[in-house]
Design a protein around this nucleic acid. Structure first.
Length: 478
RNA sequence: CGGGGCGUAGCGCAGUCCGGUCAGCGCACCGCGUUUGGGACGCGGGGGUCGGAGGUUCAAAUCCUCUCGCCCCGACCA
């Protein structure tokens, strides 16, 4: 592990990359754009998966698995879908030493293959709603990869549902957006998000409407944290997902799809990380607490380690790591675990044994003010740690929210918008004309991130001045 | 694919203009000893066909030609 990290201000992109590599989350692979996720990074991803799964299950969705390969012809059934995805498809042309009669697409998303199966599974309105989720890897041949945020292959969860009405499908889309994704982002990842609708220009290829959660990273750029699509009847028509209603009339189903990806690991890093390294919210941290023992000689070592082992046993409520490595100094360990983002550190040395205390240090508050002496007695220590982890979890969310709010601006006019974009997000009226969206991008590199869910009101488009009723968020994005 | 930059030890780099004690530095790694309350120190050690191919030369990391790869800025994007 290297001793230094570039600071965020110096070079945000390098800071991020070094942080990912030095904290042992991921590595570059021999294949450009692909990423090796190391055990520590995967442990974070696993916690993300578990938290999402809990919520997905609560929404009445079942788990299943569909194939990696999708026949090209399936893909071509929905015109907009294939048009949107074809530039980034990986295609298998040979198998078993022979050229295939029909090329197979390595799934970039599974609407096509799942749509085909849904058409076989759904006959009657009694079969609806059908709600399926799968955990999978997908491949999109991105031109500019970035560890976790945009790699050729990534891990995700994709949900696919079919319903008997538009309203029910829309309800599903919002259920996932708010109760699964937003709740996860804010309550688990401590990342505040703005839920909203994508513009026509930015929506999913083939969807009726796409909804998104936009999160602000530490450099004020926006990152799409999750997405939920109302596919209308487009995919049902393309894949023959038809059912007989209670009047025995044949109807096209209404479908949805939604996903959240391994990119969330990157989001956690970029939202919470500081110049000392990662800062992990307690609910996602592989180790919530690390114990660093301190000794001067073998006698002390034995006594201190014995106490640490005892403590390790008593702290079974938490995910605890005891760093009993010899040959590394305590100072080295402090820095290493800081870089890896462990929320709470316990320091135990000979002086603590004498006084019956431990030093409790919190990662999100570096320096003296984040340190306190706490009694070793478990009646005191355990409740203190519970409270502290809760406090860290919520204050991380608050801190990120304050940052997001204080970097979101309401410009008076277009000139002000141009000035504000480099400083953060802009929230302003938009007339829903694509030309205005394009002009903002041309002038500022900012894209229209979403139309947040909020009351409509009377105003004028920030770009062209025409009457407008909806406000949009414009920002630079990953 | 357009515009810029870079390939020398696991990582980060110096050396290239001006060919010849340039096969080097820091970190990491291995051994021994002393250390250990905020990234320890000393001594010793291992590791590189200088991205690849060809050429010029008595002599090439260095000059010439061709190639391959990577990074950054754009277009695409969870």
């Amino acid at each position: 592990m290297s001793n230094s990290l570039p600071t965020r201000e110096e070079d945000y992109s390098k800071w991020y990359n070094d942080l990912v590599v030095q904290a042992e989350l991921a590595d570059y692979s021999p294949v450009r754009g692909c990423m090796v996720i190391r055990p520590y990074g995967y442990a974070i991803w696993n916690r993300i998966k578990n938290a999402l799964n809990e919520r997905i299950e609560q929404s009445g969705v079942d788990e299943a698995y569909f194939p990696l390969f999708i026949p090209m012809s399936f893909f071509e059934r929905e015109a907009e879908h294939v048009e949107g995805f074809s530039p980034e498809l990986a295609v298998v042309t040979h198998g078993g030493g022979k050229e295939l009669e029909e090329p197979l697409v390595v799934r970039p998303t599974s609407e096509a293959i799942i749509g085909d199966m849904f058409s076989k599974w759904i006959q009657s309105y009694r079969d609806l709603p059908l709600k399926i989720n799968q955990w999978a890897n997908v491949v999109r041949w991105e031109k500019r990869p970035r560890l976790f945020l945009r790699t050729l292959e990534f891990l995700w969860q994709e949900g696919h549902t079919a319903h008997s009405s538009y309203e029910e499908a829309q309800e599903m889309v919002e259920e996932i957006l708010f109760n699964v994704y937003q709740d996860f982002c804010e309550q688990v990842a401590a990342i505040p998000v703005i839920p909203g609708k994508k513009s026509e220009n930015e929506k999913f290829a083939g969807a009726l409407a796409t909804y998104t959660l936009e999160a602000m990273m530490g450099n004020t750029w926006a990152l799409q944290a999750g997405t939920s699509h109302n596919l209308g009847q487009n995919f049902a028509k393309a894949f023959n997902i038809q059912y007989s209603d209670d009047n025995n009339e044949l109807q096209d189903a209404w479908t949805t799809s939604w996903g959240m990806t391994s990119r969330m690991v990157g989001a956690v890093i970029m939202v919470h990380g500081d110049d000392h390294g990662l800062v992990l919210p307690p609910k996602l941290a592989p180790h919530q607490i690390v114990i660093v023992p301190i000794w001067r000689d073998e006698e002390q070592q034995e006594a201190v380690l014995a106490k640490c082992q005892e403590l390790l046993g008593e702290l079974g409520d938490f995910r605890v790591k005891l760093d009993d490595r010899d040959s590394y100094s305590p100072g080295f360990k402090f820095n290493e675990w800081e870089q890896k983002g462990v929320p709470v550190r316990l320091e135990i040395g000979p002086k603590d044994l004498e006084k019956g205390t431990v030093v409790v240090a919190r990662r999100d508050m570096p320096g003296k003010q984040g340190k306190q002496f706490v009694s070793m007695e478990t009646e005191t220590l355990i409740p203190t740690l519970h409270n502290l982890l809760d406090e860290i979890q919520s204050s991380m969310l608050e801190k990120a929210r304050e940052f997001q709010l204080s970097h979101t601006y309401e410009p008076k006019d277009y000139a002000e918008l141009q000035d504000m974009i480099p400083e953060g997000w802009v929230h302003a009226y938009w007339c829903e004309d694509e030309a205005c969206e394009a002009k903002v991008k041309e002038d500022t590199k900012a894209t229209l991130r979403c139309l947040p869910f909020e009351e409509e009101s009377e105003g004028t488009c920030i770009v062209c001045g025409k009457p407008a009723t909806k406000k949009a968020v414009f920002a630079r994005a990953y």
